[in-house]
Each structure stands twice: as C-alpha cells, then as structure tokens.
C-alpha cells in the first residue's frame, strides 16, 4: 500500500495494522502502546480524543454534534472514567449554511448537558469549498478514573452482556444516504452511556462501546487479550426489526455494524443476573442480554467463536474489507 485507502479508516484489520506497523514504531510509548479507548493519566485522570466526519451530518436519531459528544464521552465511560470536560474543535467548509452550524451547536449543548460534561475549550478553522465536507469535529475528553478495566483477569464462565440491540446507527446512516432504496423506521442509537458507570462497582470487569467494526471486531480484540476463547450465542444477540430486515434483504452482517450508544460488558458469572437487571431498568438497557461467555473448552485461546442459530460453530474475524452489499 503506497497510498491511504478508505479501508484504513474502517476500524478493521487494515487500521490495526496501520497503527501497529506505521504509527507505533514512530510514536510508541508505554501508555500509547496499550491502545485503549482512553488513556489513564497520572492523578486519576483519563484522556481520550476522537474525530467525527459522518456523512450526512444530520440523520434520524442524531447529528454530527450529538455524535461528537457521545462518542468521546462513551470512550471515557467504558475506560472506567466519569466524563468531566470536553474540548471542541470544528473544521468547517466554506459555504456551510449558518442554520446547520447553529443546529449542530444546539445538539452539542443538549448532548453535553445530558452526559454531564462541560465544554472547556474549543477551536474553529475554515477550509476552502471542496477541501472538506461541510463540517468535521474533533472532541477530546477528560474524565475522573473510578475503575481500572482488566480484560486479562477474564476467566472461563465470565459472561458477556450487550446493553441493547446492535447496528441501528450504521443502518440509520446508510438509509440517510439514500442507498439501497430501502425504507425503514430506524433511528441511530446515539446516546451517552453514563448509566453504565455504577456497574463498574457491581461486577463489570471490562467494557467497550460497540463502534466501528461492530461487535465481532471489538470482541475479537478482547479474545486476543485473554487466555481463553469467547463463545457467542447467535440467537441471544439482540437485534431490532429493521436491522434484522436489512440483514435479510441486503445480506449485511449485523455483527459488523456500528452503534454509538451500545456497549458490551464482561462480568463475573455470579454477577450477570444482577447486572442484567440493573441494565434492563434503564430506558437504554431494556433489550440488554447475555450474549456469550468466556469459554475454557471450545476452540483455542484467543479465538472468538459464534454458535450459530443452526447449531454450528465458526470463527468470527475482525472486520476486513468495507461493507458492500452482496449481490451476484
């Protein structure tokens, strides 16, 4: 590869290879090498950053502003930190409508209040028409550490819990782009995950928000870090009707679709029931479900395995190439 391709940004294998082979040899330090969603800093602080380039900027269930707040906030939460402060940097394309910008700002205000974070600093740059696409946002976040996630302490029997149905965000974006000629009532799941914070005290040993690359990609990364395999039960994975419909009509695999308000939790076997009942009491956790477990018998260490509805077993790979609908 001698040029950057779109695949590099898809959150899959290509991106991980890029970080491992290109970024870390130049910039690697012990903290960065952990490749966490947020880094824990001295003084009990956690720090994270993310850029948002979604197209279109407005979509059912949110916009680039809600995404820019929630995405960064959620990275802090799943890293064991209470979100406190955000920075906010805009890169605007010359000619962007003022009304759009104001609408995004109002979304940012609403989302940051909901997530309990303060916008503490910011920046604005404008690029010539065509050198950017309407609006790009970068947010960095600082949070107070309340827990240290520890994937490596996972042991057979530990349960994986999804906090809700998967894939609505990706699908809402695809539909908002008018692709496939599909009509469905689907809204992005974009939301802050603050309601997960108390669970760090009641049995959660690891969390990840299910973003780019989807469930299969983030759990293959978890599987690679632990001494056992992970087995997912296909029939237990919560999916909404529109996502099941898109899977059936387009052949899209929901295990690789992104969310912006869902997470997966790893909990001790004995705590799973309790965690589940806490989650289900929250409006964002009503469809929470145990979707699998760390397994000491099936497969080899480091493998992520799906027990299919049909009863077969297969390995799940991280996202490889970009999602194109299948057609022959």
């Amino acid at each position: 590869m001698d040029r950057v391709s779109l695949e590099l940004g898809s959150g899959g294998r290509t991106m991980r290879d890029f970080i491992a082979r290109t970024v870390l040899p130049v910039l690697g330090n012990p903290r960065l090498r952990k490749l966490l969603d947020a880094s824990h800093l001295p003084g009990g602080m956690a720090f994270t950053t993310d850029s948002y380039v979604v197209d279109p900027i407005f979509f059912p269930g949110g916009d680039i502003g809600t995404l820019a707040v929630n995405g960064t906030v959620n990275d802090l939460i799943v890293s064991g930190a209470v979100p406190r402060f955000l920075s906010l940097a805009f890169i605007l394309e010359e000619g962007l409508g003022w009304a759009s910008l104001e609408r995004v700002l109002r979304s940012i205000r609403r989302a940051s209040r909901q997530a309990g974070v303060e916008i503490a600093t910011g920046d604005t740059k404008v690029v010539r028409r065509g050198q950017g696409d309407k609006i790009y946002i970068n947010t960095s976040g600082i949070g107070r550490v309340v827990a240290r996630p520890k994937a490596s302490s996972a042991r057979p029997g530990d349960k994986l819990i999804a906090t809700g149905t998967l894939g609505e965000h990706s699908l809402a974006i695809l539909l908002a782009r008018g692709e496939f000629g599909l009509e469905a009532k689907v809204r992005s799941d974009c939301a802050p995950l603050n309601f997960l914070l108390p669970l760090w005290k009641t049995g959660a040993i690891w969390m990840r928000d299910v973003t780019r690359g989807g469930l299969a990609t983030i759990l293959s990364e978890l599987a690679a870090e632990i001494p056992d395999s992970i087995v997912l039960e296909e029939e237990a994975i919560p999916l909404s009707r529109p996502v099941r419909a898109a899977a059936g009509l387009l052949g899209i695999d929901p295990l690789y679709l992104a969310c912006e308000g869902r997470a997966v939790l790893l909990v001790r076997q004995g705590r799973a029931g309790q965690v589940l009942s806490v989650l289900r009491k929250h409006p964002l956790g009503r469809r929470a479900a145990v979707i699998g477990a760390v397994d000491g018998r099936v497969g080899r260490p480091g493998e992520l395995i799906l027990r299919t509805t049909a009863g077969g077993l297969r390995l799940l790979e991280p996202l490889t190439s970009e999602l194109l609908p299948r057609i022959c």
Binding site: G251, R297, V298, G299, E303, I305, L313, R314, L315, E317, T320, L324, R326, C328
Partner: peptide, 19 residues
Amino acid sequence: VSFEGACFVLFKYRDVAHG
C-alpha cells in the same frame, strides 16, 4: 474478492474444531 467466492467465504467463516 466476492462475497460468494470460496476463498473469501472460507477466510471469513472459518471452521472451529469441535471440542
């Protein structure tokens, strides 16, 4: 390349030895 290609399918949906 193809979603229906034997190599792609085998790469993506690898088997697990039953244990």
